[in-house]
Every structure is written in C-alpha cells, then in structure tokens.
Computed example of a mutant assay.
Amino acid sequence: MHALARKRYHKAAPLILVLMLLALLTGVGAVITSQSAEATTASASDVEEGQKLFSSNCATCHGLDAEGQDGVAPSLVGVGAAAVDFQVGTGRMPMQASGPQAPAKDVVFSEEEIAQLAAYVASLGSGPSVPTAEQVDPELGDAAAGMELFRTNCAMCHGSVGGGGALTQGKFAPSLMETTPTHIYEAMLTGPQSMPVFNNANITEEGKRDIIAYLVAQRDGSPGGLSLGAIGPVAEGWWAWIVGIGLLIASTVWIGARSS
C-alpha cells in the first residue's frame, strides 16, 4: 500500500496544485471584474458630454484635469460615479458659497447631465459606481436588522431615526427623512462631508439595504403620535421631566392651596 502511494506522489504535485488554484482565482476575478465593468461602462459620447459640462461648471474649483486645487476643492480622480451622482444629484454641487459644509439645495442639472458628469469622472479613475435599483430597494431589506446597524454606526450623528443633528465647527448631519434610497446608499459608499466611508468590509451590500429599509419605515409617522423632533430619548426625557414633573408640581401646589 505504501509503495503504491509513493508511486502516485510526485514532488512537483504541491506546486502544480498551487498554480492551478492561482489560475482558478485569477479567472474568477477576471470574470467578476468584466461583469462589473460591463454594468458600469458608459458610452464615449456620455464621457465627452460630461467633460464639456465639467469644463464649464466644475473646472473653476476642481481644475481642468479634475485633480483639485489646494484649499479650494479636492481631486475627483478615483472618487467614482457614485460620489458625483450624490453630490450633484442632491444639489450640494455646484457649491453656492465656501463654508464648512455644502448644504443640499435645488438640483441644477438634469438626470441625463448628472449621468454624463458621473461618466466623465468615472473615466478618470476607478471608484464606487451608482448602485442598482435592486441594491437600494427597501422592500428587499430587513428593517429590524437595519435598525441595529443604523443605531450602531449612524445614530450618534443622524439621530435614532435619521432626523439629523448638529456637529462641531458649523457642520451638521442632515435629516434623512426625504433622502432617496440611492443617495443614502451612495453616501455610505463615498462618505461625503464629515461622514466616514462605509465600504462593503464595514457594512455589506445587504446591510446597506437593510439600513435603507429601516429609514424608509420611519417615514410612516411616529407610533407615539408626536415625533418630538425625531431625536429620540433626549426629547422624550425632556418631555417627561419638564412637562410631566411640571404638572406634578402644579398639582401639588393646587392641592396644598385648596387644603389651606
């Protein structure tokens, strides 16, 4: 039996197995990359039109080559289409005035123009692409799981239900009550303003969709009636102490006055 095993074994076998495994992994990676590229590739005309829009509307701050200017605007090389779709699609860009944070405002460009700008910036370097409709569909998410993820990663800035909140140095976490699912997903991918980046290693694609499902579920109204600013237990505690105890004190004084 041992003699037969020795005849079947060859010294080069481990090396051959390692090479075969590397070839398999390389092939799988190439297929996945090509599929992603096919899904996000824009036409040459879109890139060309996007470059024209960029030159006439964005280059003043970001530079003609989109590499940014120190103290004025950051480089856009490698930020991906998702960052452009979020910033321009929410009206934050073009920025009206220099400040600690770019607020959301009326959108300047059409959806087609936003897609063209995103296509041009995406052509400058690889980065996060615009999510698909399936990735942001709240109906496919788990709101309960999203609640846990949101309160662990997001509630300290955006509030327990996404109502927003103040930060330091004039910055703020905006309300998410009217933000579209696509823009919520893109914000997690790109980390705009003071927000950290939540890539798929931090929060998976399914986790991001669960968070969206939770936030959308909060738009149906507060179960208690009054939202109290949608900032969670702080407002509820204020109501209990100021109003509740205030009524108790008033009742005590009234009873004391009646008894005397």
Results as ranks from 00 to 15, higher is better:
D70N: 13
V136N: 00
T180Q: 10
M147C: 09
P100T: 00
Y9N: 12
E134N: 09
G164L: 04
A133T: 06
L25Q: 12
G162Q: 01
T168V: 13
Q135G: 05
Q35T: 11
S75C: 08
L117Y: 01
P181M: 03
T182C: 06
G99T: 03
V79G: 00
G256Q: 10
L22P: 02
G99S: 10
L124Q: 04
T252K: 09
A118C: 08
V136P: 02
L76K: 01
L140I: 06
H10V: 09
N200D: 13
I245A: 13
N200T: 14
T26V: 13
F86K: 05
M188H: 03
L76A: 05
E148M: 14
L215E: 00
I32N: 09
E206G: 11
P174D: 03
L215T: 01
A133I: 04
A3W: 07
M20R: 10
V84P: 05
Q51F: 05
A143D: 05
D70I: 15
P138F: 02
E205T: 12
A3S: 14
A235T: 08
V130W: 00
G80K: 02
T252L: 15
A173Y: 04
L149M: 08
G141F: 00
C58I: 07
C157N: 07
N57S: 12
V72H: 05
L248P: 07
L21Q: 09
Q193I: 08
P192A: 03
G244H: 03
M156C: 01
A12T: 12
S129M: 04
G29E: 04
E111D: 13
Q101N: 03
A240V: 14
E49N: 15
M147K: 15
V79W: 01
V216Q: 03
G50V: 09
E139Y: 07
N202F: 11
A82F: 01
L19A: 15
G63P: 06
I16R: 14
S75F: 08
G89P: 04
L176A: 02
L124F: 11
Q116G: 02
N57D: 03
M156A: 14
G191A: 04
P233N: 09
V243E: 05
I242D: 00
H2Y: 09
Y120H: 07
Q169P: 00
G221N: 06
D210W: 03
H2M: 10
M156R: 13
P233F: 12
M188V: 08
A213M: 07
S222G: 05
S129L: 09
A133L: 10
P128G: 05
S260Y: 09
M20S: 14
F54A: 00
L4R: 12
L22I: 10
M147S: 13
A230P: 04
A250H: 06
L64G: 15
A59N: 06
A30M: 14
N153W: 08
E148L: 15
I249W: 12
T132V: 10
S251A: 15
I184R: 02
H183G: 01
L4Y: 08
Y9P: 03
